[in-house]
Design a protein around this nucleic acid. Structure first.
Lengths: 174, 174
DNA sequence: GTGGATGCAAAGACTTTGCAGCATC
DNA sequence: GATGCTGCAAAGTCTTTGCATCCAC
């Protein structure tokens, strides 16, 4: 997990040795302080895999230390600025977070049925994106790509229930 | 404008002759009615270029017919389902809409400084996306790709003000 | 010791919903 | 004329903010 990755979209500054060092560096650079609350938020986020919302984070957080909602949101914003977490707003609904330290950049496929999120990586797409930016003089700092649709297991399930519905006149369950 | 495009991600059903026909078809299919309000929303959306939020839409809408916020949101949702508008949630903030009828699919570059949105098209990226989906059995219905960063004019401006700030000790204006 | 941080509660932004009357199919 | 639609206002959801107190540097 805590691999010393050399991510290409590291925001700025010299290369620290870990996520905490990186956070410290960001805080110092901006005249901010490392409090127990901020530390706890970072640790809990690093311990989580995949995507989580603020509420979920708060639940896990409180097992180790009480942190207010306000502080959580404030800290998440700092972590985002520090390049340690990434924010997504898949479809409607609330923001989802994921930590990106020591993780390769990846994109997402979101299933409209079950809400499941699958990650994928495609170097060629990444390369083409950079090329597009270069062409128009756009200085890219990050990007998101989300493919929406129906995942394999949901479409198999749908196919099964559709065939058993053949005697009824329903085109789509909704 | 009202080109009879053959978009690949048309949701379903036979090909209508225009956006209104397409909306009618969608409404009929779902046992819904074409009211003056819904018609007005569609027309105003088609007349707008680029990205707009609900509030902006409401302002333009009211020049021609009073439509309540509630009806606007409800109609936007129908239009999205009908494949006539697309919803974006760039960064934080509210939803932005754009109409997609007769428009080629495109992706976006969003400037973090000025908030400007630039569209671009890259067939190769599209093709690769489809390939990724096919490989994992994901049935894609739509996708978004957003590149965040600093647009050319903003970075030129920043470079200019940075060089005039050389005598001061500020690394970044914020 | 001081400027930044915290928690609380209240405000905020945006969107959705219940309901009574209205209008399309 | 029945079923779906509208506007209003209220509720909801998620997130941000003002302020008094607290604490990391």
């Amino acid at each position: 997990m805590a691999t010393a990755a050399t991510s290409p979209q590291r925001p700025s500054g010299p290369s620290p040795e870990g996520p905490l060092a990186r956070f410290r560096e960001y805080l110092g650079r901006n005249n901010l302080r490392l409090t127990p609350e901020r530390r706890a938020v970072l640790e809990v986020i690093l311990s989580r895999e995949g995507h989580f919302d603020a509420e979920e984070l708060l639940r896990f957080l409180r097992r180790r230390r009480r942190v207010s909602r306000a502080t959580l949101y404030r800290t998440l914003d700092h972590l985002r600025e520090a390049g340690l977490v990434k924010v997504h707003r898949f479809g409607r609904g609330q923001a989802l977070y994921e930590h990106v330290y020591g993780r390769q950049h990846h994109d997402h496929m979101v299933c409209n049925r079950c809400g499941g999120v699958t990650e994928f990586v495609n170097e060629e797409i990444e390369r083409l994106q950079e090329e597009v930016c270069r062409r128009v003089g756009f200085h890219s700092t990050s990007h998101v790509m989300e493919i929406y649709g129906v995942c394999r297991s949901c479409s198999e399930q749908e196919a099964a229930s559709a065939s058993s519905d053949l005697h009824r006149g329903e085109p789509r369950p909704r």
